[in-house]
Amino acid sequence: MCRTIAERCAELGVGICVNSDAHLSRLIGGFDRVTSLLEEIHFPEELIMNRNRDVLLDALAASGVR
């Protein structure tokens, strides 16, 4: 399911935010699985909206979030 959504986002040029969805504190920041998936499908880095602070803030501003 996640793979299909990520592939479709890449096709359509839709930005995504990556997170660990951790439910335990020791899992916070664990991006190994999602990183592997995005590399495997050659997901464009420029569509990862939270790849750094400035890109995230720009994406939020562009969406109308203050």
Score class of each variant (00 low, 15 high):
10 A>H: 06
12 L>F: 11
41 I>G: 06
6 A>E: 04
64 G>C: 06
37 L>E: 00
4 T>I: 10
43 F>V: 03
57 L>G: 09
37 L>V: 08
44 P>F: 00
16 I>S: 03
43 F>K: 00
46 E>N: 14
2 C>P: 04
8 R>L: 11
32 D>E: 13
50 N>P: 05
28 I>P: 03
53 R>L: 07
8 R>K: 12
44 P>I: 00
62 A>H: 04
25 S>V: 15
33 R>T: 15
31 F>C: 06
7 E>W: 04
12 L>Q: 13
50 N>C: 08
3 R>M: 08
10 A>E: 03
56 L>K: 03
64 G>N: 04
51 R>V: 05
6 A>G: 00
31 F>L: 11
1 M>A: 12
32 D>H: 05
18 V>P: 01
23 H>A: 14
14 V>C: 06
41 I>M: 09
61 A>H: 10
14 V>I: 15
53 R>S: 07
38 L>W: 03
18 V>D: 04
23 H>K: 10
13 G>R: 13
8 R>P: 03
36 S>I: 11
21 D>V: 14
16 I>L: 15
47 L>I: 04
19 N>W: 04
43 F>L: 06
52 N>Q: 05
43 F>M: 02
27 L>G: 05
57 L>R: 12
13 G>E: 09
35 T>K: 12
56 L>H: 01
64 G>V: 03
63 S>Y: 01
35 T>P: 04
16 I>C: 06
21 D>F: 11
22 A>M: 05
40 E>W: 05
61 A>Q: 11
21 D>K: 09
66 R>L: 02
44 P>K: 01
20 S>Y: 00
2 C>G: 11
61 A>Y: 06
30 G>W: 02
63 S>L: 09
51 R>S: 09
18 V>K: 04
36 S>K: 07
59 A>H: 04
47 L>D: 00
42 H>W: 05
61 A>R: 09
43 F>C: 00
51 R>E: 06
30 G>K: 05
22 A>D: 08
34 V>K: 04
39 E>S: 15
61 A>F: 06
55 V>C: 04
47 L>R: 03
7 E>M: 13
40 E>Q: 14
27 L>Y: 06
18 V>L: 08
58 D>S: 10
3 R>G: 01
40 E>F: 02
24 L>V: 15
43 F>S: 01
6 A>C: 14
23 H>C: 13
64 G>W: 00
40 E>D: 15
15 G>D: 05
63 S>W: 02
61 A>L: 10
4 T>N: 11
35 T>G: 07
62 A>D: 06
53 R>C: 10
11 E>D: 15
33 R>G: 15
1 M>L: 13
42 H>V: 10
